[in-house]
């Protein structure tokens, strides 16, 4: 079952001489439960693609469907709400809210939505990610690996249709990177969670079910 679909995505930045074609027509389909890695070098357009898939930025041309819904038909406000309900983000720089503790960070998107919190589900995630001891600490008191676990927990908490991860191991050492990748793997398996991850590291990408290579704004093979 297709859960995420991109059709003819194009994105152009700037004008005239400084015009950059970041994406030049990308078509992509991701099925439910699939763990996909998008691999490309710096400047290949992979981050732009992820931003489009997550509705963080609007494409110059083309469409993105999440659960068969054309997300760019939505206005900004509605798009934000869709984001917090259907998409979980994991960033290279973790992007935890520094003034909230771990537990508050994990619950924030759902609280903002006014949604009922599934205590059992959250407990499951926390124990799987091994951050039970850290729940009342502030992000600054955690190591990079721990922070990324919290970010993954936050992404998972709302049972999103898809998790989008932007270089999740970019700021971590190799041992921690492996830990985090295996967590992604477990997450995909145990929760049947759809994950789209971008990375420049082909070794890291091996953890995924499928690898998509992107070069100069185009997908080169499947």
């Amino acid at each position: 079952m297709t859960i995420l679909r991109a059709e003819g995505l194009k994105k152009t930045y700037g004008k005239g001489d400084s015009k950059v074609n970041a994406l030049r027509g990308v078509n992509l389909e991701v099925n439910k439960g699939e763990f996909v890695a998008i691999v490309g070098t710096s400047g290949s357009g992979k981050s732009t693609l992820l931003h489009m898939l997550g509705g963080l930025d609007r494409p110059t041309e083309g469409k993105v469907f999440i659960d068969d819904k054309d997300i760019f038909k939505l206005k900004d406000e509605a798009l934000t709400i869709l984001r917090r309900r259907k998409i979980g983000f994991v960033f290279q720089s973790f992007n935890l809210v520094p003034v909230l503790n771990v537990m508050e960070n994990i619950l924030l998107p759902q609280e903002l939505d006014g949604a009922k919190i599934d205590k059992e589900h959250i407990d499951n995630i926390i124990s799987m990610l091994g951050i039970k001891e850290q729940l009342h600490k502030l992000p600054t008191q955690l190591s990079g690996g721990q922070q990324q676990r919290v970010a993954i927990a936050r992404a998972l908490a709302g049972r999103p249709s898809v998790i989008l991860a932007d270089e999740p191991t970019g700021n971590l050492d190799s041992k921690t990177s492996q830990d985090v990748m295996s967590l992604f793997r477990v997450t995909a398996d145990r929760f049947n969670q759809t994950i789209v991850m971008i990375t420049h590291n082909t070794e890291i990408a091996q953890t995924a079910d499928r690898i998509i290579r992107i070069e100069d704004g185009l997908i080169v093979n499947r």
Binding site: L56, D76, E77, T80, I81, R85, N95, V97, L112, R154
Partner: peptide, 10 residues
């Protein structure tokens, strides 16, 4: 950051 995790403009 808040916006990426779903805090609306309002």
């Amino acid at each position: 950051l808040l916006k990426t995790i779903g805090v609306t403009s309002r």
